[in-house]
Lab assay of single mutants.
Amino acid sequence: LTVEVTLDGRRIELHGLSEEAHEILRHALERNADDKEIKKILEELRK
């Protein structure tokens, strides 16, 4: 799955996400998580 997010003013596409990762990010974006929170989530998903 692919998600497009804006971090530090740049639009980035995240490819190859699992369903779980996609859901976690989608929920964070829906509640307008800040860049710091999104980065933390991405860091966790990379593990």
Rank of each mutant, 00 (worst) to 15 (best):
R46G: 15
K47V: 15
I12T: 05
I38V: 07
H15S: 13
E19G: 08
R46N: 14
L29K: 05
H22V: 15
L14P: 01
E13L: 14
R26E: 05
L1V: 12
E23Y: 10
A21M: 11
T6V: 14
L42C: 03
T6M: 14
L1G: 08
K39C: 09
E19D: 10
I12E: 06
K47W: 15
K36S: 14
E4C: 14
D35R: 04
T6H: 08
S18H: 03
H27Y: 10
E43V: 09
R31K: 09
L17P: 00
A33K: 03
A21Q: 14
N32Q: 11
R10D: 13
R46T: 14
L29Y: 04
V3C: 07
K47D: 13
T6G: 02
E23R: 15
V5C: 07
L7F: 06
H22F: 15
V5A: 03
R26T: 14
E13P: 05
S18E: 04
K36F: 13
D8P: 01
E19H: 12
H15K: 12
K40F: 11
K40T: 08
N32K: 12
L14R: 01
E37D: 06
E43F: 07
E37A: 07
L25G: 00
I12Q: 07
R26L: 13
N32E: 09
I24R: 11
H27S: 15
R46E: 14
K36L: 13
R11V: 15
H27C: 10
E44T: 11
R26F: 06
R26C: 03
I24L: 11
L7P: 02
E23T: 08
I24W: 06
I41Q: 01
H15G: 07
L25N: 00
L42H: 00
E43A: 11
E43I: 09
N32I: 05
R26V: 13
H27W: 09
R10C: 15
L17N: 01
L42D: 00
A33C: 09
D35K: 04
V3W: 09
D35T: 10
H22E: 09
S18I: 02
A28L: 09
G9L: 02
L45I: 15
D35C: 06
I12H: 04
K39L: 13
D8V: 01
K40V: 11
L1H: 12
I38M: 10
E23I: 09
K40H: 12
G16H: 08
H27Q: 14
L45W: 08
R26D: 01
T6P: 02
I41L: 10
E23M: 13
L17I: 05
I24N: 05
I38T: 01
L29D: 01
D8E: 07
L1S: 07
R31C: 11
H22R: 10
A33T: 04
D34W: 03
L14F: 08
T2Y: 10
S18A: 04
K40Y: 12
E37S: 05
V3Q: 05
E20M: 08
T6S: 06
S18M: 03
L29R: 02
E23L: 11
K47G: 10
K39V: 09
L25S: 00
E44R: 09
T6A: 04
T2F: 09
T2G: 05
R26I: 13
G16P: 02
N32G: 13
E19M: 13
K40R: 10
E37V: 07
